[in-house]
């Protein structure tokens, strides 16, 4: 991992290079990005079919449904976080590289968030409109989803690192990550509900932001340690 003059790339360079590589890979395989999005839209579309299309019902259940669907869609995309790197051997290279592993993991997680969290946030207004959500509430929904998907990507990185290379890894990954994701769901969905009920909702946003900052500073280390264990 040295350049022509034998110099080691700096931390920022290594971080950007890792994120860039994963973004490029996602660009070349758009299915990996699009499938969870279609899944998100379909789950959201299933609920009115099951619980009835009445306007009040949709307005009441909208925040919860959108949040659960976003959580499940994120789970769907987590499995591929380290698996393709394991299969082509580049994960081993990351592990033996002189760059600090938490930084590399953070780079990969940021790329994952950009390819899974950001698209979810981007399509959420379209789906929220079908649930009769007013404009200002949609804004709150997008804010909670931005913060929430950051946390989900980071927590998911820990789960993906623990289960990488296991048979039946997908179901196990959900089993590990879902309990960890519960607080995010409680905070996210209820903040939107409060906004829809025209109550004070900012404390939920602050709590989510605090959670995001906490996860951002701790999760990469946990995920890196987990990768070392599962790939020794």
């Amino acid at each position: 991992m040295t350049d022509a003059e034998g110099r080691l790339p700096g931390l920022a360079e290594a971080f950007v290079a890792t994120a860039r590589r994963d973004l490029l890979l996602a660009w070349k395989r758009p299915g990996d990005v699009l499938n969870p999005l279609f899944f998100f839209a379909m789950v959201v579309a299933l609920f009115p079919l099951a619980v009835g299309p009445s306007r009040e019902q949709l307005m009441f259940s909208g925040p919860g449904v959108l949040w659960v669907a976003a959580l499940l869609a994120t789970l769907l995309s987590l499995n591929s976080l380290f698996v393709s790197d394991l299969e082509d051997g580049s994960l081993e290279q990351l592990l033996v590289s002189p760059q600090p592993l938490p930084l590399t993991v953070l780079g990969k997680t940021v790329a994952h968030w950009l390819t899974s969290g950001v698209p979810l946030v981007a399509v959420s207004p379209l789906l929220a409109i079908t649930y009769q959500m007013p404009g200002n509430v949609i804004g709150v929904l997008m804010l909670t989803l931005i913060l929430g998907t950051i946390v989900l990507s980071l927590l998911g990185a820990i789960g993906a690192a623990l289960t990488v290379g296991l048979h039946r890894g997908t179901a196990l990954l959900s089993l590990l990550v879902l309990p960890l994701a519960m607080p995010v769901l409680i905070l996210g969905a209820n903040t939107v509900s409060l906004a829809a009920g025209e109550e004070l909702y900012t404390q939920g946003l602050w709590a989510l932001a605090a959670y995001a900052v906490g996860a951002l500073s701790l999760a990469p280390f946990a995920a890196a340690a987990a990768l070392r264990v599962t790939n020794e």
Partner: peptide, 25 residues
């Protein structure tokens, strides 16, 4: 052993966060 120990440690933090988030809720 090691993987599950890490999960257990992450879980300790989680139980605390769940408690406070439900209290808020």
């Amino acid at each position: 052993d090691k993987a599950s120990a890490m999960l257990a440690i992450v879980g300790v933090v989680n139980v605390v966060i769940v408690r406070y988030s439900v209290e808020w809720w």
